Simulated scan of single mutants.
Amino acid sequence: MDDHKRSYYRNLSQTLVKKFARRGIDALYCDTAAEAKDAVLELMPSGSSVTWGGSMSIEQAGILDAVREGNYNIIDRSDKGPGEDPRIMLSKQMMADYFLMSTNAFTRDGELVNIDGMGTRLCFLVAGPAHVIVVTSMNKMTRDVPSALQRIHDQATPPNCVRLNIPTPCAATGACGDCHGANTICCQEVITRHSREPHRITVVLVGEELGY
C-alpha cells in the first residue's frame, strides 16, 4: 500500500473511531495485519478462554496461529466430537471470555453489517461471550447499510462459497443469484447499530486488505 493511501486510512480511522464510540463500540487502527495481530493479543489477558467464528481475516492476519501458540484456554469449534450434539459446542463458545471474528462490511457511520448461514457466528456477536473482537480491513467500509449488503452479495459471499465448496449459483457464476435453496449461506442478516453493553465489542481496523 502506498504512503498516500496509508495516510488516508489513518485519517479516516480517527473519524471511524468516534463513530463507533457513539455506538458503544471501541475501535482502534493498525497499519498492518502484523500490528493488528499484536493488538488483538494485547487485548486478551493470559489464561482467557478464546473462541472464534469462520473468518479469513483473522486467519490471514496470523491471529489464530498466535492464539493457539499462546497461553489461552482455546474453545475450537472443530473439536466437536463425532455424533456430539452441536449445541454442546455452541454452549461452550457462548461462555468464552473472547470471541474473534471479522465483519462482512461496516458503514462509515459505524454500523457492522453481516450475513450468515446458520447464524453460529453472528449469534455470538449479538450475545454470549464477554468480549467480541472484530478484525476488519478498511476496504470493507461502505456508505450505508444497503451498500454494505450489496458489497456482501457481490464481493464476499461468492468467494466464500467457492472457498467452502458450497454449490450456490454465485459460486458458479460469480454473481448473486438471490437463491433460496438449501445451500444458501445468505440466511441471516445482522445489523449491529449499537452495543447495549459498552466496550463489549472492539473493532480492530486494518490498513492492509484482509478476507473478502
Rank of each mutant, 00 (worst) to 15 (best):
M56H: 08
G70H: 13
K37Q: 06
S46I: 00
I25Y: 10
R77F: 10
V40G: 08
I74W: 04
G83I: 10
S48A: 06
S48G: 05
L41R: 13
D31W: 12
D26L: 09
S55E: 01
N71E: 02
G70N: 13
E42S: 15
E69D: 08
E42Y: 14
V40F: 08
W52I: 01
D79N: 15
Q60S: 01
R22H: 05
L41Q: 09
D79F: 13
S57T: 09
I75R: 08
S78G: 12
N71D: 06
G70C: 10
Y72K: 04
E69C: 03
D38Y: 06
V40R: 14
A36R: 09
S78Y: 14
I63G: 00
G47A: 02
E84D: 08
Y29D: 00
L41S: 09
M44S: 04
A27E: 05
P82L: 12
A66E: 11
T51C: 06
T51D: 00
I25K: 07
K37H: 03
D38M: 08
I58Y: 03
E59P: 05
A66K: 15
K37D: 00
V40H: 10
A66H: 15
A66V: 12
A61K: 06
A27M: 09
K80S: 13
W52K: 02
E84R: 13
G54Q: 07
P45A: 07
P45G: 11
R23I: 00
Y29K: 06
Y72D: 02
G81W: 15
I74N: 07
S55D: 01
D26G: 05
L41F: 08
S46Y: 01
D31H: 14
I58E: 02
S48E: 02
V67D: 02
R68H: 15
S49C: 01
I74G: 04
I58R: 05
L43G: 05
I25F: 10
E42A: 15
K80Q: 15
E42F: 14
D31Q: 13
I75E: 07
G70Q: 11
K37F: 01
D65I: 00
I74F: 03
